[in-house]
Computed example of a mutant assay.
Amino acid sequence: MADLADLPEFLAVVRSGGFRDAARVTGKSASGLSEAVRRLEARLGVRLLNRTTRSIAPTEAGRRLIDRLGPALAEVEDALDVVNGFRERPAGTLKLNVPVSAARLVLPRIVPKFLAAYPDIRLEILAEDSFVDVLAEGCDAGIRYDERLEQDMIAVPIGPREQRMAAAASPDYLDRAGRTEHPRDLLAHRCLLGRFRGGALTNPWEFEKDGEIVKIEVSGPLIVSTSGGIDCAIEAAIGGAGVIAIFEEWLRPHLEAGKLEPVLQDWWQSFSGPFLYYPGRKHLPGPLRAFVDFARAARW
């Protein structure tokens, strides 16, 4: 029989689409994962992956193994986690895939208290703005907004139940460029944009007032990655580079300090808060069950 430890590593490589991405998800080295797959192929006597310098793809034998392996490993994980129910405190690793905004604005309110309540749980947070299959990424659950929720998932509210997109600029910039009364006025302004990992821009900007929704295609001198450049864009706005539009909570400290001034505040659009979502399995892993219960009980 093949070493059972090599089977989940093979599955992680296929689900991630490569050794480097699988290494990021599993926390193991790409070379170690490659060796595990080679070892598995040698023991089974068949090639499981076709490899090129740019990609990997399962062979027919590999696909058949994956079809049987995924459900089998899920059953094994469920069976082992039943033991967690006999512990005084849940233990193990919990992996969450969350947008950067949730990592910045939602999780800091809950993570310290959760870790204090469950010292035997190790929490791993993957913060990114690409909308991935959380299970394929090796995660137990994710946080997303309702328009991004998958239909076969269970969703639990987490964080504030209503949020707003806010626009702001430095007083100095507005003194020079002029203040706005209608979203269309932004067409004459320098606006700071974000770009998602998939390439899409945070454009158009959407505003709402008295039932009227206005979408404006803006432009400007700066585009930052939404996964890591938002703070840079905020500092640029504070420095007078232009108008920024982002979660109100992200801008609130700078608005309260007077470094930024609200733009079109009567037009800021509200939307429902995020959800913790996870697959509807009969037996949830102990760490995930603890986090779900903690999120349900939290006050926001």
Rank of each mutant, 00 (worst) to 15 (best):
L96Y: 05
L44R: 11
A141K: 10
P71D: 09
A103L: 05
P160D: 13
D293V: 01
P8K: 03
S272W: 00
A298L: 12
R64V: 06
L174D: 10
E261M: 12
E128K: 05
W267N: 00
L255Y: 01
G198T: 14
G45D: 05
K28P: 04
F294G: 05
L288Y: 11
F247L: 13
R104I: 10
L48M: 08
R43G: 06
A30D: 12
R161I: 00
L65D: 03
G239S: 13
A61R: 11
P8S: 02
S130R: 14
R63Q: 14
A168V: 07
Q163W: 13
A36W: 00
F114N: 03
E235V: 12
V98W: 03
G273H: 03
R54D: 13
V214Y: 01
A117Y: 01
Y118G: 03
A236F: 04
A237L: 14
K215Y: 06
D172N: 13
L193K: 05
R24T: 09
E208T: 07
L49A: 05
F10V: 10
E88A: 15
V132Q: 06
D152K: 08
I66W: 04
R39L: 06
V111Q: 06
L4H: 10
E150Q: 13
I234H: 03
R109H: 15
I216L: 11
S170P: 06
C191Y: 04
S16I: 07
I238S: 06
A22L: 01
A102W: 00
R252L: 10
T202L: 11
G178E: 06
L107N: 07
A91R: 15
K95V: 01
G17I: 13
A297I: 05
V243Y: 01
A127N: 01
E77F: 09
D175A: 15
G211L: 02
R20D: 10
I238E: 04
P221T: 11
G45F: 12
L187R: 13
A136P: 00
G142H: 02
P274S: 15
L149S: 02
I216E: 13
L192F: 07
A236M: 04
R51W: 09
H283L: 15
I216F: 12
K95I: 03
V156K: 06
S219D: 15
A30Y: 07
L192G: 04
R64E: 15
S170G: 12
L264V: 09
A177N: 08
A103D: 10
I234P: 01
E35K: 12
S170R: 10
L115P: 03
C191R: 04
L11R: 14
E212M: 10
S227Q: 08
